[in-house]
Design a protein around this nucleic acid. Structure first.
Lengths: 221, 221
DNA sequence: CGTTGCGTTGATCTCTATCAAAAAAGGTGG
DNA sequence: CCACCTTTTTTGATAGAGATCAACGCAACG
Protein backbone atom coordinates (compact mmCIF):
# COMPACT_ATOMS: atom_id res chain seq x y z
CA UNK A 1 0.00 0.00 0.00
CA UNK A 2 1.34 3.44 -0.89
CA UNK A 3 1.91 6.20 1.63
CA UNK A 4 -0.92 8.12 0.02
CA UNK A 5 -3.40 5.28 0.52
CA UNK A 6 -2.15 4.63 4.03
CA UNK A 7 -2.68 8.24 5.04
CA UNK A 8 -6.26 8.21 3.77
CA UNK A 9 -7.08 5.52 6.28
CA UNK A 10 -5.71 7.34 9.30
CA UNK A 11 -8.63 8.97 11.08
CA UNK A 12 -6.78 12.26 11.45
CA UNK A 13 -6.68 12.70 7.73
CA UNK A 14 -9.71 10.82 6.46
CA UNK A 15 -11.68 14.00 5.76
CA UNK A 16 -8.96 15.56 3.62
CA UNK A 17 -9.33 15.77 -0.14
CA UNK A 18 -6.83 14.28 -2.52
CA UNK A 19 -4.82 17.45 -2.89
CA UNK A 20 -4.39 17.88 0.85
CA UNK A 21 -3.48 14.22 1.32
CA UNK A 22 -0.82 14.89 -1.26
CA UNK A 23 0.42 17.74 0.92
CA UNK A 24 0.44 15.56 4.03
CA UNK A 25 2.24 12.82 2.12
CA UNK A 26 4.92 15.33 1.23
CA UNK A 27 6.07 15.64 4.83
CA UNK A 28 5.10 12.25 6.33
CA UNK A 29 7.08 9.08 5.94
CA UNK A 30 6.75 5.38 6.67
CA UNK A 31 8.86 3.86 9.39
CA UNK A 32 9.34 0.18 9.89
CA UNK A 33 10.17 -1.19 13.30
CA UNK A 34 11.43 -4.70 14.03
CA UNK A 35 10.41 -6.50 17.20
CA UNK A 36 12.36 -5.07 20.09
CA UNK A 37 13.50 -1.99 18.20
CA UNK A 38 12.88 1.47 19.65
CA UNK A 39 11.44 4.47 17.81
CA UNK A 40 12.44 6.80 20.61
CA UNK A 41 13.84 6.84 24.11
CA UNK A 42 12.74 8.93 27.06
CA UNK A 43 14.38 12.32 26.76
CA UNK A 44 14.86 12.22 22.99
CA UNK A 45 13.97 15.39 21.13
CA UNK A 46 10.31 15.15 20.16
CA UNK A 47 10.10 16.44 16.61
CA UNK A 48 7.46 14.05 15.36
CA UNK A 49 4.59 11.82 16.42
CA UNK A 50 3.40 8.55 14.91
CA UNK A 51 0.34 6.63 13.80
CA UNK A 52 0.45 2.84 13.99
CA UNK A 53 -0.38 1.26 10.63
CA UNK A 54 0.22 -2.36 11.59
CA UNK A 55 1.75 -4.23 14.49
CA UNK A 56 2.00 -3.06 18.07
CA UNK A 57 4.26 -0.93 20.24
CA UNK A 58 4.60 -0.44 23.96
CA UNK A 59 5.09 2.90 25.66
CA UNK A 60 6.93 2.44 28.93
CA UNK A 61 8.98 4.12 31.59
CA UNK A 62 11.84 2.87 33.73
CA UNK A 63 12.24 3.58 37.41
CA UNK A 64 15.71 4.59 38.67
CA UNK A 65 16.34 0.98 39.71
CA UNK A 66 15.37 -0.32 36.29
CA UNK A 67 11.82 -1.49 36.90
CA UNK A 68 9.65 -1.14 33.83
CA UNK A 69 6.17 0.30 33.87
CA UNK A 70 4.07 0.08 30.70
CA UNK A 71 1.94 3.17 30.18
CA UNK A 72 0.13 1.87 27.14
CA UNK A 73 0.20 -0.64 24.34
CA UNK A 74 -0.82 0.88 21.01
CA UNK A 75 -1.97 -1.09 18.01
CA UNK A 76 -3.33 -0.37 14.54
CA UNK A 77 -5.05 2.98 14.26
CA UNK A 78 -3.60 4.42 17.47
CA UNK A 79 -1.51 7.54 17.68
CA UNK A 80 1.81 7.46 19.51
CA UNK A 81 3.46 10.42 21.26
CA UNK A 82 0.86 12.85 19.98
CA UNK A 83 1.01 14.34 23.47
CA UNK A 84 4.64 15.30 23.21
CA UNK A 85 4.07 17.51 20.24
CA UNK A 86 2.40 20.63 21.52
CA UNK A 87 4.22 20.95 24.76
CA UNK A 88 7.79 20.16 25.56
CA UNK A 89 10.74 19.22 23.49
CA UNK A 90 11.31 15.65 24.60
CA UNK A 91 9.49 12.34 24.70
CA UNK A 92 8.40 11.45 28.23
CA UNK A 93 8.78 7.66 27.81
CA UNK A 94 10.25 4.88 25.71
CA UNK A 95 8.52 3.38 22.68
CA UNK A 96 9.47 -0.07 21.45
CA UNK A 97 7.99 -2.50 18.94
CA UNK A 98 6.36 -5.55 20.49
CA UNK A 99 6.36 -7.17 17.08
CA UNK A 100 7.20 -6.06 13.55
CA UNK A 101 5.41 -2.77 13.23
CA UNK A 102 4.84 -0.09 10.60
CA UNK A 103 4.15 3.50 11.55
CA UNK A 104 3.61 6.78 9.80
CA UNK A 105 5.94 9.46 11.04
CA UNK A 106 4.30 12.89 11.23
CA UNK A 107 6.73 15.75 11.84
CA UNK A 108 5.69 18.25 14.47
CA UNK A 109 6.24 21.53 12.62
CA UNK A 110 4.52 20.52 9.42
CA UNK A 111 1.58 19.17 11.36
CA UNK A 112 1.17 22.42 13.25
CA UNK A 113 1.08 24.29 9.95
CA UNK A 114 -1.54 21.86 8.74
CA UNK A 115 -3.71 22.47 11.79
CA UNK A 116 -3.57 26.21 11.28
CA UNK A 117 -5.01 25.67 7.81
CA UNK A 118 -7.41 22.84 8.65
CA UNK A 119 -9.04 23.59 11.97
CA UNK A 120 -11.15 20.46 11.72
CA UNK A 121 -7.99 18.40 12.07
CA UNK A 122 -7.32 20.29 15.26
CA UNK A 123 -10.67 19.09 16.53
CA UNK A 124 -9.78 15.54 15.65
CA UNK A 125 -6.53 15.58 17.46
CA UNK A 126 -8.23 17.26 20.41
CA UNK A 127 -10.64 14.38 20.39
CA UNK A 128 -7.76 11.91 20.42
CA UNK A 129 -6.18 13.81 23.30
CA UNK A 130 -9.39 13.72 25.27
CA UNK A 131 -9.58 9.98 24.92
CA UNK A 132 -6.00 9.57 25.97
CA UNK A 133 -6.52 11.86 28.92
CA UNK A 134 -9.58 9.94 30.01
CA UNK A 135 -7.57 6.74 29.79
CA UNK A 136 -4.90 8.11 32.09
CA UNK A 137 -7.44 9.45 34.56
CA UNK A 138 -8.80 5.93 34.67
CA UNK A 139 -5.30 4.53 35.19
CA UNK A 140 -4.64 6.91 38.06
CA UNK A 141 -7.95 5.99 39.61
CA UNK A 142 -7.27 2.27 39.23
CA UNK A 143 -3.79 2.44 40.64
CA UNK A 144 -4.81 4.38 43.69
CA UNK A 145 -8.14 2.82 44.52
CA UNK A 146 -8.12 -0.74 43.19
CA UNK A 147 -6.14 -3.84 44.02
CA UNK A 148 -4.49 -6.20 41.59
CA UNK A 149 -7.31 -8.72 41.51
CA UNK A 150 -9.56 -5.95 40.33
CA UNK A 151 -7.11 -4.61 37.75
CA UNK A 152 -6.56 -8.05 36.30
CA UNK A 153 -10.30 -8.74 36.20
CA UNK A 154 -10.76 -5.46 34.35
CA UNK A 155 -8.03 -6.29 31.87
CA UNK A 156 -9.46 -9.72 31.12
CA UNK A 157 -12.95 -8.30 30.86
CA UNK A 158 -12.01 -5.53 28.47
CA UNK A 159 -9.84 -7.69 26.26
CA UNK A 160 -12.10 -10.69 25.89
CA UNK A 161 -14.19 -11.59 22.88
CA UNK A 162 -16.88 -14.12 22.04
CA UNK A 163 -15.33 -17.00 20.14
CA UNK A 164 -17.67 -19.81 19.08
CA UNK A 165 -19.61 -19.91 22.30
CA UNK A 166 -16.61 -19.24 24.55
CA UNK A 167 -15.56 -15.94 26.04
CA UNK A 168 -11.83 -15.74 25.47
CA UNK A 169 -9.11 -13.25 26.29
CA UNK A 170 -6.12 -13.71 24.02
CA UNK A 171 -2.86 -12.72 25.64
CA UNK A 172 -1.07 -10.96 22.84
CA UNK A 173 1.72 -9.92 25.19
CA UNK A 174 3.92 -11.89 27.55
CA UNK A 175 2.92 -12.26 31.20
CA UNK A 176 5.95 -10.28 32.17
CA UNK A 177 4.62 -7.42 30.07
CA UNK A 178 1.09 -7.85 31.32
CA UNK A 179 2.43 -7.54 34.85
CA UNK A 180 4.21 -4.31 33.93
CA UNK A 181 1.02 -3.03 32.32
CA UNK A 182 -1.01 -3.78 35.44
CA UNK A 183 1.56 -2.07 37.61
CA UNK A 184 2.84 -5.19 39.33
CA UNK A 185 5.47 -7.92 38.98
CA UNK A 186 5.29 -11.35 37.27
CA UNK A 187 5.16 -13.29 40.56
CA UNK A 188 2.10 -11.42 41.77
CA UNK A 189 0.38 -11.74 38.41
CA UNK A 190 1.03 -15.47 38.43
CA UNK A 191 -0.48 -15.81 41.89
CA UNK A 192 -3.50 -13.71 40.99
CA UNK A 193 -4.17 -15.82 37.91
CA UNK A 194 -3.85 -18.90 40.10
CA UNK A 195 -6.42 -17.43 42.46
CA UNK A 196 -8.93 -17.02 39.63
CA UNK A 197 -8.15 -20.51 38.34
CA UNK A 198 -8.62 -22.06 41.78
CA UNK A 199 -11.97 -20.30 42.04
CA UNK A 200 -12.97 -21.79 38.66
CA UNK A 201 -13.47 -18.33 37.26
CA UNK A 202 -10.97 -18.68 34.44
CA UNK A 203 -8.92 -21.36 32.75
CA UNK A 204 -5.72 -21.05 30.77
CA UNK A 205 -5.22 -22.66 27.38
CA UNK A 206 -2.06 -21.83 25.47
CA UNK A 207 -2.20 -18.11 24.66
CA UNK A 208 -5.76 -17.77 25.86
CA UNK A 209 -7.65 -17.16 29.06
CA UNK A 210 -11.07 -18.76 28.96
CA UNK A 211 -13.67 -17.07 31.11
CA UNK A 212 -15.68 -19.75 32.88
CA UNK A 213 -17.71 -17.51 35.14
CA UNK A 214 -18.01 -13.94 33.96
CA UNK A 215 -20.42 -13.04 36.75
CA UNK A 216 -17.88 -13.92 39.41
CA UNK A 217 -15.17 -12.21 37.41
CA UNK A 218 -17.16 -9.00 37.18
CA UNK A 219 -17.79 -9.15 40.91
CA UNK A 220 -14.11 -8.36 41.34
CA UNK A 221 -14.20 -5.18 39.23
CA UNK B 1 -13.42 43.40 36.98
CA UNK B 2 -15.73 42.96 34.00
CA UNK B 3 -16.14 39.71 32.10
CA UNK B 4 -14.46 41.35 29.14
CA UNK B 5 -11.34 42.26 31.13
CA UNK B 6 -11.28 38.88 32.81
CA UNK B 7 -11.32 37.07 29.49
CA UNK B 8 -8.40 39.12 28.17
CA UNK B 9 -6.24 37.72 30.94
CA UNK B 10 -7.02 34.08 30.26
CA UNK B 11 -4.16 32.67 28.21
CA UNK B 12 -6.53 30.96 25.78
CA UNK B 13 -7.87 34.30 24.67
CA UNK B 14 -4.99 36.69 25.22
CA UNK B 15 -4.16 36.95 21.53
CA UNK B 16 -7.68 37.86 20.48
CA UNK B 17 -8.52 41.39 19.43
CA UNK B 18 -11.22 43.44 21.10
CA UNK B 19 -13.93 42.43 18.69
CA UNK B 20 -13.30 38.72 19.16
CA UNK B 21 -13.11 39.07 22.91
CA UNK B 22 -16.54 40.67 22.60
CA UNK B 23 -17.68 37.56 20.77
CA UNK B 24 -16.23 35.26 23.41
CA UNK B 25 -17.84 37.36 26.13
CA UNK B 26 -21.17 36.85 24.43
CA UNK B 27 -21.17 33.14 25.22
CA UNK B 28 -19.04 32.92 28.36
CA UNK B 29 -20.25 33.69 31.85
CA UNK B 30 -18.85 34.12 35.33
CA UNK B 31 -19.61 31.51 37.93
CA UNK B 32 -19.05 31.98 41.62
CA UNK B 33 -18.44 28.98 43.83
CA UNK B 34 -18.59 28.98 47.62
CA UNK B 35 -16.26 26.79 49.63
CA UNK B 36 -17.49 23.23 49.47
CA UNK B 37 -19.85 23.87 46.57
CA UNK B 38 -19.64 21.70 43.45
CA UNK B 39 -19.57 22.91 39.84
CA UNK B 40 -20.18 19.42 38.54
CA UNK B 41 -20.41 15.83 39.63
CA UNK B 42 -18.99 12.76 37.97
CA UNK B 43 -21.38 11.70 35.23
CA UNK B 44 -22.95 15.13 34.70
CA UNK B 45 -23.40 16.18 31.10
CA UNK B 46 -20.27 18.00 30.02
CA UNK B 47 -21.47 20.98 28.03
CA UNK B 48 -18.85 23.45 29.21
CA UNK B 49 -15.37 23.77 30.64
CA UNK B 50 -13.98 26.37 33.02
CA UNK B 51 -11.06 28.67 33.68
CA UNK B 52 -10.21 29.53 37.28
CA UNK B 53 -10.10 33.29 37.82
CA UNK B 54 -9.52 33.26 41.56
CA UNK B 55 -9.61 30.71 44.35
CA UNK B 56 -9.01 27.00 44.06
CA UNK B 57 -10.94 23.85 43.19
CA UNK B 58 -10.23 20.18 43.59
CA UNK B 59 -10.95 17.54 40.97
CA UNK B 60 -11.55 14.21 42.62
CA UNK B 61 -13.00 10.78 42.22
CA UNK B 62 -14.73 8.49 44.70
CA UNK B 63 -14.18 4.76 44.95
CA UNK B 64 -17.26 2.53 45.31
CA UNK B 65 -16.71 2.46 49.09
CA UNK B 66 -16.50 6.23 49.29
CA UNK B 67 -12.76 6.79 49.39
CA UNK B 68 -11.71 10.02 47.78
CA UNK B 69 -8.81 10.41 45.39
CA UNK B 70 -7.80 13.91 44.29
CA UNK B 71 -6.72 14.01 40.67
CA UNK B 72 -5.67 17.64 40.71
CA UNK B 73 -6.01 20.93 42.51
CA UNK B 74 -6.45 23.84 40.15
CA UNK B 75 -5.82 27.47 41.02
CA UNK B 76 -5.81 30.80 39.24
CA UNK B 77 -5.09 30.53 35.53
CA UNK B 78 -5.77 26.81 35.28
CA UNK B 79 -8.36 25.24 33.04
CA UNK B 80 -10.84 22.77 34.48
CA UNK B 81 -12.51 19.94 32.59
CA UNK B 82 -11.04 21.06 29.28
CA UNK B 83 -10.45 17.36 28.67
CA UNK B 84 -14.10 16.46 28.82
CA UNK B 85 -15.05 18.74 25.99
CA UNK B 86 -13.87 17.09 22.83
CA UNK B 87 -14.64 13.56 23.71
CA UNK B 88 -17.52 12.18 25.64
CA UNK B 89 -20.63 13.65 27.04
CA UNK B 90 -19.96 13.50 30.74
CA UNK B 91 -17.48 14.76 33.33
CA UNK B 92 -15.19 11.98 34.56
CA UNK B 93 -14.80 13.34 38.10
CA UNK B 94 -16.17 15.72 40.72
CA UNK B 95 -15.15 19.36 40.97
CA UNK B 96 -15.58 21.25 44.22
CA UNK B 97 -14.43 24.63 45.52
CA UNK B 98 -11.73 24.41 48.19
CA UNK B 99 -12.38 28.04 49.01
CA UNK B 100 -14.50 30.81 47.52
CA UNK B 101 -13.72 30.61 43.85
CA UNK B 102 -14.62 32.45 40.65
CA UNK B 103 -14.55 30.74 37.28
CA UNK B 104 -15.34 31.58 33.71
CA UNK B 105 -17.73 29.12 32.16
CA UNK B 106 -16.94 28.36 28.51
CA UNK B 107 -19.67 26.42 26.69
CA UNK B 108 -18.47 23.54 24.57
CA UNK B 109 -20.33 24.22 21.32
CA UNK B 110 -19.48 27.90 21.10
CA UNK B 111 -15.86 27.16 21.86
CA UNK B 112 -15.66 24.61 19.07
CA UNK B 113 -17.02 27.20 16.65
CA UNK B 114 -14.38 29.61 17.90
CA UNK B 115 -11.61 27.11 17.25
CA UNK B 116 -12.77 26.57 13.69
CA UNK B 117 -12.33 30.31 13.13
CA UNK B 118 -9.18 30.79 15.22
CA UNK B 119 -6.93 27.83 14.70
CA UNK B 120 -4.26 29.37 16.93
CA UNK B 121 -6.61 28.89 19.89
CA UNK B 122 -6.68 25.22 18.99
CA UNK B 123 -2.92 25.17 19.39
CA UNK B 124 -3.21 26.79 22.78
CA UNK B 125 -5.67 24.31 24.09
CA UNK B 126 -3.61 21.50 22.60
CA UNK B 127 -0.72 22.87 24.56
CA UNK B 128 -2.80 22.83 27.73
CA UNK B 129 -3.81 19.26 26.96
CA UNK B 130 -0.23 18.19 26.52
CA UNK B 131 0.70 19.59 29.88
CA UNK B 132 -2.22 17.87 31.53
CA UNK B 133 -1.37 14.62 29.82
CA UNK B 134 2.22 14.85 30.93
CA UNK B 135 1.05 15.47 34.46
CA UNK B 136 -1.09 12.33 34.45
CA UNK B 137 1.68 10.23 32.92
CA UNK B 138 3.81 11.39 35.83
CA UNK B 139 1.05 10.52 38.27
CA UNK B 140 0.72 7.04 36.86
CA UNK B 141 4.46 6.58 37.04
CA UNK B 142 4.59 7.80 40.63
CA UNK B 143 1.72 5.68 41.82
CA UNK B 144 3.10 2.52 40.34
CA UNK B 145 6.80 2.89 41.02
CA UNK B 146 7.20 5.12 44.09
CA UNK B 147 6.32 4.80 47.75
CA UNK B 148 4.68 7.42 49.90
CA UNK B 149 7.90 8.82 51.36
CA UNK B 150 8.99 9.56 47.83
CA UNK B 151 5.67 11.07 46.77
CA UNK B 152 5.59 13.34 49.81
CA UNK B 153 9.20 14.40 49.26
CA UNK B 154 8.33 15.25 45.68
CA UNK B 155 5.30 17.26 46.73
CA UNK B 156 7.24 19.25 49.31
CA UNK B 157 10.07 19.80 46.89
CA UNK B 158 7.87 21.02 44.08
CA UNK B 159 5.75 23.27 46.24
CA UNK B 160 8.45 24.96 48.25
CA UNK B 161 9.78 28.48 47.79
CA UNK B 162 12.63 30.54 49.13
CA UNK B 163 11.33 32.83 51.85
CA UNK B 164 13.88 35.13 53.51
CA UNK B 165 16.61 32.54 53.70
CA UNK B 166 14.32 29.63 54.51
CA UNK B 167 12.96 27.07 52.10
CA UNK B 168 9.30 26.77 52.93
CA UNK B 169 6.39 24.72 51.63
CA UNK B 170 3.09 26.36 52.45
CA UNK B 171 0.28 23.89 52.90
CA UNK B 172 -2.61 25.62 51.22
CA UNK B 173 -4.77 22.53 51.63
CA UNK B 174 -5.65 20.42 54.64
CA UNK B 175 -3.62 17.34 55.45
CA UNK B 176 -6.61 15.21 54.78
CA UNK B 177 -6.69 16.61 51.27
CA UNK B 178 -2.95 16.33 50.84
CA UNK B 179 -3.27 12.67 51.74
CA UNK B 180 -5.96 12.19 49.10
CA UNK B 181 -3.76 14.01 46.58
CA UNK B 182 -0.81 11.73 47.32
CA UNK B 183 -3.01 8.67 47.00
CA UNK B 184 -2.98 7.72 50.66
CA UNK B 185 -4.86 8.31 53.92
CA UNK B 186 -4.34 10.93 56.65
CA UNK B 187 -2.83 8.45 59.14
CA UNK B 188 -0.09 7.42 56.75
CA UNK B 189 0.63 11.02 55.79
CA UNK B 190 0.91 11.94 59.44
CA UNK B 191 3.38 9.14 60.06
CA UNK B 192 5.43 9.99 56.99
CA UNK B 193 5.67 13.61 58.07
CA UNK B 194 6.72 12.40 61.51
CA UNK B 195 9.44 10.29 59.91
CA UNK B 196 10.87 13.33 58.13
CA UNK B 197 10.60 15.40 61.30
CA UNK B 198 12.37 12.74 63.37
CA UNK B 199 15.14 12.67 60.78
CA UNK B 200 15.49 16.47 61.09
CA UNK B 201 14.74 16.85 57.41
CA UNK B 202 11.71 19.06 57.87
CA UNK B 203 9.98 21.01 60.61
CA UNK B 204 6.37 22.12 60.86
CA UNK B 205 5.32 25.64 61.80
CA UNK B 206 1.66 26.53 61.55
CA UNK B 207 0.67 26.23 57.87
CA UNK B 208 4.26 25.74 56.75
CA UNK B 209 6.75 22.98 56.30
CA UNK B 210 10.30 24.23 56.72
CA UNK B 211 12.90 22.27 54.84
CA UNK B 212 15.91 21.80 57.10
CA UNK B 213 17.90 19.47 54.89
CA UNK B 214 16.98 19.59 51.25
CA UNK B 215 19.78 17.21 50.30
CA UNK B 216 18.39 14.45 52.47
CA UNK B 217 14.90 15.28 51.28
CA UNK B 218 15.92 14.95 47.64
CA UNK B 219 17.59 11.65 48.41
CA UNK B 220 14.08 10.27 48.90
CA UNK B 221 12.82 11.32 45.47
C1' DC C 1 23.28 -30.26 25.25
C1' DG C 2 24.50 -26.03 27.98
C1' DT C 3 22.69 -21.45 28.25
C1' DT C 4 19.32 -17.95 28.75
C1' DG C 5 14.95 -15.94 29.76
C1' DC C 6 10.19 -16.74 31.21
C1' DG C 7 6.80 -18.49 34.38
C1' DT C 8 5.53 -20.63 38.66
C1' DT C 9 5.83 -21.60 43.56
C1' DG C 10 7.32 -20.97 48.36
C1' DA C 11 9.02 -18.29 52.41
C1' DT C 12 9.63 -13.97 54.22
C1' DC C 13 9.46 -9.08 54.96
C1' DT C 14 7.92 -4.41 54.29
C1' DC C 15 4.77 -1.02 53.48
C1' DT C 16 0.41 0.78 54.01
C1' DA C 17 -4.56 0.32 55.15
C1' DT C 18 -7.63 -0.54 58.87
C1' DC C 19 -9.45 -0.11 63.39
C1' DA C 20 -9.55 2.31 67.70
C1' DA C 21 -8.89 6.15 70.54
C1' DA C 22 -6.98 10.28 72.21
C1' DA C 23 -5.41 15.00 71.37
C1' DA C 24 -5.76 19.27 68.93
C1' DA C 25 -8.07 22.59 66.29
C1' DG C 26 -12.27 25.03 64.70
C1' DG C 27 -16.71 26.55 64.85
C1' DT C 28 -21.19 27.83 67.10
C1' DG C 29 -24.51 29.55 70.16
C1' DG C 30 -25.25 31.39 74.54
C1' DC D 1 -15.29 34.69 76.33
C1' DC D 2 -16.63 30.22 77.42
C1' DA D 3 -18.74 25.56 77.17
C1' DC D 4 -19.93 22.39 73.64
C1' DC D 5 -19.71 19.96 69.54
C1' DT D 6 -17.61 18.64 65.26
C1' DT D 7 -13.79 17.82 62.44
C1' DT D 8 -9.02 17.22 61.81
C1' DT D 9 -4.75 15.31 63.20
C1' DT D 10 -1.96 12.26 65.67
C1' DT D 11 -0.63 7.91 67.79
C1' DG D 12 -0.86 2.95 68.67
C1' DA D 13 -1.80 -1.88 67.56
C1' DT D 14 -2.94 -5.08 64.05
C1' DA D 15 -3.77 -7.21 59.62
C1' DG D 16 -3.29 -7.80 54.80
C1' DA D 17 -1.61 -7.03 50.16
C1' DG D 18 2.02 -7.23 47.51
C1' DA D 19 7.23 -6.94 46.86
C1' DT D 20 11.47 -9.34 47.42
C1' DC D 21 14.49 -13.22 47.51
C1' DA D 22 15.42 -17.82 46.20
C1' DA D 23 14.73 -21.95 43.72
C1' DC D 24 13.07 -24.83 40.10
C1' DG D 25 10.74 -26.46 35.70
C1' DC D 26 10.48 -25.49 31.02
C1' DA D 27 10.85 -23.94 26.35
C1' DA D 28 13.62 -21.59 22.91
C1' DC D 29 17.95 -21.26 20.77
C1' DG D 30 22.71 -21.27 19.47
Amino acid sequence: MSLHDTLQHIFLFDTLNDKDIQLVASFCSLRHLSKGEHIFHEGDTADAFFAVVSGKVKIYKLSPDGQEYILAIQGKGHLVAEAAIFDQETYPAYCQGLEDTTLVRIPKDDFIQLILKHADIALKILHAYSKRLRYFVMQVEELSLRDIKSRLAKYINENSMEYNGQTVCRLSISKKELAALLGTIPETLSRTLKYYKDENIIQEREQDILILNSTKLRAHL
